[in-house]
Design a binder for these strands. Structure first.
Lengths: 371, 371
DNA sequence: ATGAAAAATGTAAGCGCTTACATTTTTACT
DNA sequence: AGTAAAAATGTAAGCGCTTACATTTTTCAT
């Protein structure tokens, strides 16, 4: 409950055009007009007005004009609660993300929202603070509030939840991960493979002592997969995967800083530190600077996500680029088609490696810079 | 439309206790139960069930127990659309903030949301990208969607909007600013006075050539007030307020960086740069480092807001601390009481100066570091 | 022209809930 | 015990909209 950011987002615009300022001015009369008022004023039935608003192609051009003109004149706008009650759908989609404290999910969710907007839907965002129990609570809240569909992060959750959603016929798309073995609808990327690629690059630079700063690998399947990816690469390169030095913490700049220092204070300090995401990596970079270590001469650092922070950091981050925007967009499309009774396919998006300035060859001498 | 982040937030929890996992499991039967189902199962009328849920004190303890037990057993949860339609209120509050791209509003809005939550309300957040036209559109969308009340940032907007809200009887609280001269309900702080205090401190450090990086002062009244505050201090100190070098830009780290460089490339480069907010200041600090200027020896920099970024920056920022959390909380309380028919009073919160490491005495010699 | 099919429109039954008002039960005095 | 007032409960009328179905109008091939 505690740290949760909250939020529900929405963006402006209506399905049918209404002059905005007119809307603010017109209809100086007392009450807020209803659909019935419009019908009366236009001399048609409520059914026709409703059709003009929702399925304009099922109505004569002439009727449409009259009705829309009346709508404008009266400054009518539909009551969403009534519409939702009668139609049995709210045109609201819920998204539950682990955190809003940093920008990890911002870009993807924004794209998701934009695409939803295109389809006349509103997004409601809730945050789970990386806690499964809170996520469950949020799922309940959102569905009870009438969400027509849900966006969730990752695969890992109580199977009961999937049953619950299925029973309520609420489609859900799982994002930020992709596992062909899982049958549930998902739009994401392969965390393990992505991190493996980056790790291979690190290895190719001659690093053999590798450290890793990651989020909790028990509850967070994306984090776990990324660590797996590093181990995969090590194994493939003939190294012992269990030599990977893993430091678990939470996603924040400060935590990354602390974890990095802890890694550097070890006897067998790694020459490359692969971070579970960019936020952690930025913290690591800051710590390195504070320790007077030069990047990448003394130590290499990598990130994951390629959020804005990555390029804006002291030293631009070498990281994995995730196509967040496309992911959000595709997720929205998948959900929309699911709502409309179709059966969308899962999609796995490719990631790329973004070479910037924090990865270099492993240092030759073990030049120490105890500060 | 373009850059808008989206978002609507919500946090879990119901007014009445329902075992969560039970909820996910129970009621394996076909349909989703309605209030009428509960009434039938409990052997009471729908009115009584409704009262158990909404006004438990108007019901016998015994009845309450029976009903709640039935609610639990059936896994009933109310249909919000129906409730909203029947009750004429949605328990949804809208907030329209200029941006979600950075953390400027995050803390305050989060506190706002938390307080709302306490009162059983859900928050819907929309963003206006600092554009008045988009803000108007959002206000319309949110009210049409049924928001019971609105949180808005600053005072400056078309008076028609206030009329529109008044007509619809939708209370609105203006935040992030405070002007006793304005009669509209507000919960905020005095931007002008706050910045003036900080400027006085800068002046006291011997700076006479002062630069300022700010957001657009035409559309953004908070930004304008802050610049005014600097001028006030200069004037009071016997300096010519028009000597203030003002650089207008948008709020982003990069923009702050660029603006700072521009300021430093002038003949009459300022010895102190006061930034309109912390984001800009962090950019300025980064630019200064890049230019090999030492802070605060070569140049002083100040921020505004005291967001997390401020203390996490390369050099911890001297800035104005704004009690964001209390502001959000008070704003929520004000709105809740307005919804309940009361007439809450505006409140102005005090700000404090947060002395950290970016403000120092004006340099003696004009030591130049052209890079 | 004529009639069957297609298109447009109208009628009216809810969607699931709240709440004013009516009725019944309980409480608290005398 | 008896009664008026208070408390609890029930009855039923909507809230504003969508939509199945019925009806009317238009279209179009013959």
């Amino acid at each position: 409950m505690a740290l949760m950011h909250f939020h529900a987002l929405t963006r402006a615009s209506e399905n049918y055009p209404i002059g905005l300022m007119e809307e603010f001015t017109s209809s100086t009369l007392g009450e807020i007009p209803t659909l019935a008022d419009v019908a009366a004023a236009a001399g048609v039935s409520t059914a026709t007005v409703s059709r003009c608003l929702n399925t304009p192609d099922r109505v004569t051009k002439k009727t449409l004009n009259i009705v829309m003109e009346t709508v404008d004149r009266l400054g009518y706008s539909p009551n969403y609660s009534a519409r939702a009650l009668a139609a049995g759908r709210t045109n609201t989609i819920g998204a539950i993300i682990p955190t809003m404290e940093n920008a990890i999910f911002a870009r993807g969710i924004q794209a998701f929202q934009e695409e939803l907007q295109e389809n006349g839907c509103t997004l409601l965002v809730a945050s789970s603070s990386y806690r499964q129990d809170l996520e469950e609570e949020q799922i309940k809240t959102l569905t009870v509030r009438g969400a027509d569909a849900l966006l969730l992060i990752g695969y890992q959750r109580d199977p009961k939840i999937y049953e619950y959603l299925e029973k309520r016929k609420i489609p859900a798309v799982l994002t930020w991960a992709s596992d062909p073995a899982e049958k549930h609808l998902s739009v994401g990327f392969n965390n393990r493979r992505a991190m493996r690629s980056l790790a291979e690059l690190v290895l190719k630079n001659g690093h053999t002592k590798i450290g890793c700063i990651t989020a909790d690998t028990i509850a967070n399947d994306r984090a776990r997969d990324r660590v797996h990816g590093i181990r995969d690469a090590m194994e493939a390169a003939g190294l012992d995967p269990s030599d990977l030095i893993v430091q678990e913490t939470q996603y924040s700049i400060n935590k990354g800083d602390v974890a990095f220092r802890s890694l550097m204070s070890r006897e067998d300090r790694p020459t490359a530190v692969m971070c579970g995401n960019d936020v952690l990596a930025v913290g690591a970079v800051r710590a390195a600077s504070a320790l007077n270590m030069s990047i990448p001469d003394d130590v290499s650092i990598t990130g994951f996500d390629d959020i804005e922070l990555a390029s804006v950091a002291n030293v631009p981050l070498t990281t994995v680029h995730v196509p967040h925007r496309r992911m959000g967009q595709f997720a929205a499309q998948a959900l929309m088609s699911a709502i409309n009774g179709k059966t969308p396919q899962s999609v796995e998006l490719p990631t790329t490696i973004c070479r910037r300035n924090t990865l270099g060859p492993a240092p030759k001498a073990s030049k120490r810079n105890r500060s």
